[in-house]
Deep mutational scan, measured.
Amino acid sequence: MIVFVRFNSSHGFPVEVDSDTSIFQLKEVVAKRQGVPADQLRVIFAGKELRNDWTVQNCDLDQQSIVHIVQRPWRKGQEMNATGGDDPRNAAGGCEREPQSLTRVDLSSSVLPGDSVGLAVILHTDSRKDSPPAGSPAGRSIYNSFYVYCKGPCQRVQPGKLRVQCSTCRQATLTLTQGPSCWDDVLIPNRMSGECQSPHCPGTSAEFFFKCGAHPTSDKETSVALHLIATNSRNITCITCTDVRSPVLVFQCNSRHVICLDCFHLYCVTRLNDRQFVHDPQLGYSLPCVAGCPNSLIKELHHFRILGEEQYNRYQQYGAEECVLQMGGVLCPRPGCGAGLLPEPDQRKVTCEGGNGLGCGFAFCRECKEAYHEGECSAVFEASGTTTQAYRVDERAAEQARWEAASKETIKKTTKPCPRCHVPVEKNGGCMHMKCPQPQCRLEWCWNCGCEWNRVCMGDHWFDV
């Protein structure tokens, strides 16, 4: 396979590697080409510095992935760790964990309700045991953590790749202090920090972006993250068709209702045909949960890209028209025109101005929308079919299609509260000796007794199943 190397943020060049090629071997190839010592090179990928003893497969490097290699003399205490030698983080029983690669970060837990604080980093599902597709590297999971809308060759929703760059020099040479644990960490600028490894760059702020994971991409090709779309790892039924499908869209209502993408497309087109989208002054033209839940309008309007190009163009047109109407304007009634106009409040005669090729020149009556006339309008008909009709959803289907309910059931079956801080902690095999993952707590306690870890627990039921 081919990976592209950008040395000291210059133009990239291809390097041929195998899945079992080590990072140090990659350094040696680059060092020979650039005429520099291999031990002064640092390989940066997806916000993480890659260790010498890791392989291309370990690092989730795919065909035509772009890695950054910078030349920086080692500072005291760094060289041993980078070589894969006596790194205290690798000691058996050590409590410190390697910062998780962005290629394996899962933010789907952050669609849980606000009262489930902490689960994004504490609760991990076991539903990723799908067998890898044919042709994928051994052991590589097909679980997708992110979804994007690819405006490039795909023109559809695709699995996405999370990447990070330095907000100062805009190069992907920043190593994160810690990985993101929720969508806010990724979507809110300057929320996460790190250290830029580019020479002479003092940058410390992280800037995240997404790429389409279905095809090789260049540095400049980015895609918009659709953070309401998630892999259906909890096997929730769709609120409309009641099938279990994946991926799904999880509405931001209190129940976190789930809808499959085909039904979401149908829901949007139906509402669009009836012009029953909601115009929100802050958000724009949007839709609420299909069950009509309060405070559930979709905030990231790129989710409506699921409509496809033709329907999305209609959505944008109707949204612009609705904006004009909300501002007190009118639409030209001549067939084939429909231009938005903003006449004076007491102006009865409205002319669709033909300047700049935008208007048709038609003069019409503001009251009856017919060709302009003197005197009273002959008839004014009330528009028919403008009443909002509820999208029919079966109550039982709505009850079963809740992301929140599956989460709470998982928590109930696989977790116990920490005796000190009461945060839910998952036990997935292993011994009875637990350690609270909350940095402010870190209590060592017994899963069996529910009390602080002691010699009695150690001698009596340390390794009970």
Rank of each mutant, 00 (worst) to 15 (best):
R348H: 07
D106H: 09
V248G: 00
Y315H: 04
K427H: 10
C352L: 02
G35R: 06
H124D: 15
Q25A: 08
V290N: 03
F304K: 00
S407K: 12
A46T: 05
H461Y: 00
G308H: 05
R420W: 08
G135A: 13
T222F: 10
L107P: 14
E98W: 08
L358H: 15
Q158M: 14
S108H: 10
D53H: 11
A91N: 13
V269Y: 03
S286T: 14
R314G: 00
L325C: 04
C365K: 03
S22Q: 11
F13R: 02
D346T: 11
F24Y: 13
Q100N: 13
E409L: 08
V423W: 13
S167A: 13
A31L: 00
P216K: 08
I239R: 00
D20P: 02
H11P: 04
D460F: 06
L187D: 03
Q178P: 08
T55D: 03
W403V: 03
Y391M: 07
G329K: 03
D464I: 15
G139D: 14
V186H: 01
W74L: 14
F45E: 02
E370A: 07
R442E: 08
R89Y: 13
Y147K: 02
S141F: 10
N313R: 12
Y318N: 01
R97P: 12
N273M: 04
R33T: 05
G194N: 01
D460N: 07
E79I: 11
Q40A: 08
V29M: 15
Q25T: 07
E409Q: 08
G338L: 05
G338K: 04
K161V: 14
V330T: 11
E207A: 07
R234Y: 07
R75W: 13
P417M: 10
F304R: 01
G430R: 14
I239D: 00
C289I: 01
P288M: 07
C352R: 02
N454Q: 05
S108C: 10
Q64D: 13
T175V: 13
S22W: 01
P417A: 10
A91H: 10
S233M: 08
V121N: 15
E195S: 11
N81S: 14
R163M: 13
L187T: 07
P424L: 09
D39H: 07
K76E: 15
S9F: 04
P99I: 11
I259A: 03
G114V: 11
H68V: 03
P113A: 11
E79L: 13
R163T: 13
